[in-house]
Design a protein around this nucleic acid. Structure first.
Length: 640
DNA sequence: GTGCGAATAAACAGTC
DNA sequence: AGACTGTTTATTCGCA
């Protein structure tokens, strides 16, 4: 709980932080734009002739302040157009150009993300697609701007030659406004993309670096360049008059047009776009400048390609896993599009995989971060190969109903695979503590274990229980004390715990009793299981040999499914035919020793006749006969 | 909505 | 004193 709440708080906090920073940035841009529009709109009054004049002045006064220069323009023109559009600030175009600053994740950031290995293949794919989309958008914007710039220059030339007097300044304003709005939309879209990445934890903005690559207007351009851009735009209105073209409808697919006018635009364009040659193919001068300014582009591009190859590898692996999952689903008559419809044990494994995939698609070498495995976010798409130690770090406590609802018959014939799986994968076994404790005790030669031996069995048999030792050990003690089926016996070696199988079976069947339809369903599900493993059915016919089932070699998921099906069936059989309960050798330890105390509640003779035999330990793997101590493993305590 | 079983957390006491 | 063991209570969650 603490971990869950902590994680949530953390994620929420980061989301809030990211959101606020992003919105702040937007506000910053907006206010910046407004401020400039308020202060510099007088330039819009300048006619084209005056602008040309100022442009000439600009060549001689490169260092002068923009505001001062525009005041000068106003003095020269002395015009006050009543149709002046207040929304046409002198610097809006440069602002928009600044908006074209790449909003995509830098290669360094991409590399960082990949190195952190926090992305699932799906996330990587989505990320790359988003990146590519953004890059495309930026390229289109750049192309559009270049075309407009070209047109403006042509118009300026025409105007200079014809000496026409501007008449339709508002039309230019409208065009510019549309252009700016388009760019603003692009900027917002890109910022949303970045914000979403930050909220997902996919992108970490270092404190030292700007939250967004977007640069404020004043930082991106020097006043001279801003002024020239403005002149280029505003002086083109006369040409618009003749052509009558409507620039409000932006054609972003316009091909790149050469522009002889040097602009800061090229300096802040997307390096990826520039390396594609689409931008600067007609502008050698700009290209040189680009190459000098972005010397690392090739390397970054190479890094990006390498990363994309990694993503492709992951996608291949994912495709393979999906194929395997599909094959299994087909085999089990379960639609792959409904993975959540799988039985409970499958769900357990799947949910664990899911819950960790978002925050930790990393190998086991990475440190674990507490998460909330109880809240799967996305449907299962991974195959069983994903359910390995590389992605199954279930660190947080999981509240989950176990599948021993109808008792957990564990087939000794199937033990090997599931045991190997749970021994290596940190997957929470889909059994209750009580079932596991019982299994541990019944596996022992004497059918009795000390508490510490039970601990050892847990850690030996399940990688999952090599973590959070305090938690699950407390749970074990709690279960031993709570359930009447566990009997503490004073032995020569001290206190040992035994299983009262009758008591254990008593607590089973109440939920299924008197529900023929459920039993029917279980039997039908058993029919699904039939082709899986003939031995499984044989063990079912034997009526619950208490060990884990593994219906398919190397496929623990299927094993879990088969186990769930069989335990359901056994639960049903428990009430349909109650018999042969007394033949269980598991009761022998109870009879051999005398309980120190008895948890009250008298035995019910009826309930005592459970169908489940206590035959257990005859053929379990010798690997588990030894009490190898895992208790001192430091990993046991690493999450507390 | 409710009850139940299970998991989890924690307090507490006794023992070693 | 501290760890371990065992008991008990409370809370939360999932499920029927």
């Amino acid at each position: 709980m603490m971990q869950e709440s902590g994680t949530e708080t953390k994620s929420n906090g980061s989301a809030i932080q990211n959101g606020s920073s992003g919105s702040n940035h937007l506000l910053q841009c907006a206010s910046l734009r407004e401020g400039r529009s308020n202060g510099e709109t007088p330039a819009a009054d300048a006619g084209a002739a005056e602008l040309v004049h100022v442009q000439q002045q600009q060549a001689l006064q490169v260092a002068r302040q923009l505001l001062l220069q525009q005041q000068q323009q106003q003095q020269v023109s002395g015009l006050k157009s009543p149709k002046r559009n207040d929304k046409q600030p002198a610097l809006q175009v440069p602002v928009s150009v600044a908006m074209m600053t790449p909003q995509v994740i830098t290669p360094q950031q991409m590399q960082q993300i990949l190195q952190q290995q926090v992305l699932s293949p799906q996330q990587l794919q989505v990320l790359l697609q988003q990146q590519q989309a953004l890059m495309l958008q930026q390229q289109q914007l750049q192309e559009f701007y270049k075309k407009q710039q070209e047109q403006l220059q042509l118009q300026l030339l025409q105007q200079q030659h014809a000496g026409k007097q501007p008449k339709e300044q508002p039309q230019v304003a409208t065009q510019q406004l549309a252009f700016q709005q388009q760019l603003l939309q692009m900027q917002q879209l890109q910022q949303q993309h970045l914000l979403s990445l930050q909220r997902q934890g996919l992108l970490t903005i270092q404190p030292g670096q700007p939250a967004l690559p977007l640069q404020p207007l004043a930082q991106g351009m020097i006043p001279t360049e801003l002024q020239q851009l403005w002149k280029e735009v505003t002086s083109a209105h006369s040409a618009e008059e003749t052509t009558g073209s409507n620039h409000s409808s932006l054609d972003l697919t316009t091909t790149c047009v050469s522009s002889s006018a040097p602009s800061k635009t090229s300096l802040i364009m997307n390096p990826h776009a520039s390396t594609n040659g689409q931008l600067s193919v007609h502008a050698p001068k700009r290209e040189r400048h680009l190459n000098s300014e972005h010397a690392l582009d090739d390397r970054s591009t190479a890094q990006c390609r390498v990363q994309m190859q990694v993503v492709q590898q992951l996608e291949l692996q994912l495709a393979k896993d999906k194929e395997r999952l599909q094959a299994m689903m087909t085999h089990l008559h379960v639609k792959s599009t409904e993975p959540k419809a799988a039985p409970q044990p499958l769900n357990l494994v799947s949910s664990v995989t899911l819950s960790k995939s978002a925050s930790e698609a990393s190998p086991q070498s990475l440190p674990h971060t507490p998460t909330t495995p109880t809240a799967p976010i996305t449907p299962v798409t991974q195959g069983p190969s994903v359910i390995t130690t590389t992605s199954m770090h279930t660190v947080g406590p999981i509240r989950r109903r176990y599948s021993d609802k109808y008792n957990v018959p564990i087939s000794s014939a199937d033990i090997a695979q599931n045991q190997e799986f749970y021994k290596n994968a940190e997957v929470r076994p889909p059994f209750t503590y009580a079932s596991l404790i019982r299994q541990a005790i019944l596996e022992s030669p004497e059918k009795q274990l000390t508490l510490n031996e039970i601990y050892n069995w847990f850690t030996r048999m399940f990688a999952y229980f090599r973590r959070n030792a305090a938690t699950w050990k407390n749970a074990v003690r709690h279960n031993l004390s709570l359930h009447k089926c566990f009997v503490r016996v004073e032995n020569v070696k001290g206190a040992v715990w035994t299983v009262d199988e009758v008591e254990f079976q008593k607590r089973r069947p109440q939920k299924i009793s008197g529900n023929p339809s459920l039993i029917k369903n279980m039997q039908s599900s058993h029919a699904y299981c039939t082709p899986l493993n003939a031995a499984l059915q044989a063990s079912m016919a034997e009526n619950s040999i208490p060990l884990y089932t593994t219906a398919s070699m190397g496929n623990p998921t299927l094993g879990n499914l088969a186990s769930a099906i069989r335990e359901e069936l056994n639960g049903a059989m428990e009430h349909t035919n109650s018999n042969e309960s007394d033949s269980s050798p598991g009761r022998s330890p109870m009879q051999a020793v005398h309980p120190v105390h008895v948890k009250e509640e008298p035995l019910d003779p009826e309930e005592a006749e459970g169908p489940l035999s206590l035959v257990t330990t005859a053929n379990h793997s010798p690997d588990f006969d030894h009490d190898r101590d895992y208790e001192d493993e430091p990993v046991n305590e690493d999450m507390e």
